[in-house]
Amino acid sequence: MSERILSVLVEDKPGVLARVASTISRRGFNINSLAVGPTNIQGRSKMTIVTELESVEQVKKQLNKLINVIKIVELDPENTIESEVLLLKVSINKDTQTSVIEKASLSGAKSVDVGSDYAVFEMTGASKDLDKLENLLKPFGIIEMIRGGRIAIQTKL
């Protein structure tokens, strides 16, 4: 099954997230990633939903039936810019400190807080690059990691 990215423009009303999520889960589909945030238009939010489906046609139609859903676009991965934010807290000690910071910064992560026994990194980028950072730092002991969910935008007009 292939990954599908739905970009859903919604009215910024209470309960809209629950309606969208329950419409998808009612059909037994898993959501791999979901990110919600405001848009440049007052009163409109955008949800980026990543799911694995044979066909999204029926889900799109069901979502379109929701009164608060305005527009749904399935993004073509070929013409899509994706981004995700990550915060990662990893264990360090005197011996590993330099190597951890070096590895992280070479991967494109920024150190935002460094203590004597931990470091926090922030990284924004494609999800697969965030995966790489996670794998790279795993041997040092990841204490906590949070990812913000994937957001995506079409490159063409």
Binding site: P14, G15, A18, R19, S22, R26, K65, L66, I67
Partner: peptide
């Protein structure tokens, strides 16, 4: 009520 009837209505309001 709004949560319970979300899947039982075309739309609902609080």
């Amino acid at each position: 009520t709004v949560g319970l009837t979300m899947a039982a209505t075309k739309h609902n309001y609080l």
